[in-house]
Design a protein around this nucleic acid. Structure first.
Lengths: 123, 123
DNA sequence: CGAATGACTAGATGACCATCAAACTAGATG
DNA sequence: CATCTAGTTTGATGGTCATCTAGTCATTCG
């Protein structure tokens, strides 16, 4: 495992970043962790994958439910799912022949909070 | 201008994306536009720049207020600001010698909404 | 066990991108 | 006008990444 993908979403560091970036400047460290999450969201395929998973019933979907929506080979889909997993945006679980991916709603909620514009600060 | 950066945040297309990705699958088109915004946020330097600008008084900051926070050359900072501008996350305005960047709160708010987890859908 | 199916890993390749040094533009000031 | 300061543009470079093909692992089923 040569490449270590930074995951901000280990419970320990999770709460440390739960501050709207409008409210106070991010530390270099917080920015590093948050950026790796946003980078994961910065690909159309991954965004759609995450949306498909999260909006699927139970917030969970099998890989076989996902591939048909794309004009991409299975390894490519697998690669993107891996990125989402390593970033902590989804979890994976094997059930017999199939692998199910589940959206981590806490992660989405955290990122949403970071981008939120508190009413008091609105233009 | 060879490279055209996709900006989702032109008012026209803005409202079209104002749907939590948890609620329903993103269209390929929506994903494309949103991804370019998240990609812009997917760099630690740009995240900090945006945070510095947005949290500065008036939600506005001069370039000279920003450069000192980084160990980077001026052209690099300028490059990142340009990306943020082209993505619609900030606007720029010249005032005499200085250039002021202002955070577009509607843009942040939109992205926050996309990532939001509606209560009814929470785990 | 052998074959089939679902999913992942490994390695290669072409495209993109963050960064810098050098050169340039714009406004202010003497 | 000459010069200084603030910021940007250009071009080059090294690194990262999305995608593919080929091969592998895991599970089920005959």
């Amino acid at each position: 495992m040569s490449k270590q993908r930074v995951s901000l979403l280990s419970p320990a560091e999770l709460e440390d970043c739960r501050i709207p970036l409008v409210s106070e400047p991010l530390s270099a460290d917080q920015a590093e962790r948050l950026a790796s999450s946003f980078k994961a969201l910065g690909d159309p395929v991954r965004l759609r994958l995450l949306s498909l998973i999260a909006s699927h019933e139970g917030g969970r979907a099998c890989v076989c439910d996902l591939t048909d929506s794309f004009d991409l080979t299975a390894p490519t889909i697998s690669h993107h799912l891996k990125v989402l997993k390593e970033t902590g945006l989804v979890t994976a679980e094997r059930r017999g022949t199939w692998v199910y991916y589940e959206a981590r709603r806490e992660a989405l909620d955290l990122l949403s909070t970071v981008l939120a514009v508190p009413q008091a600060a609105a233009a």
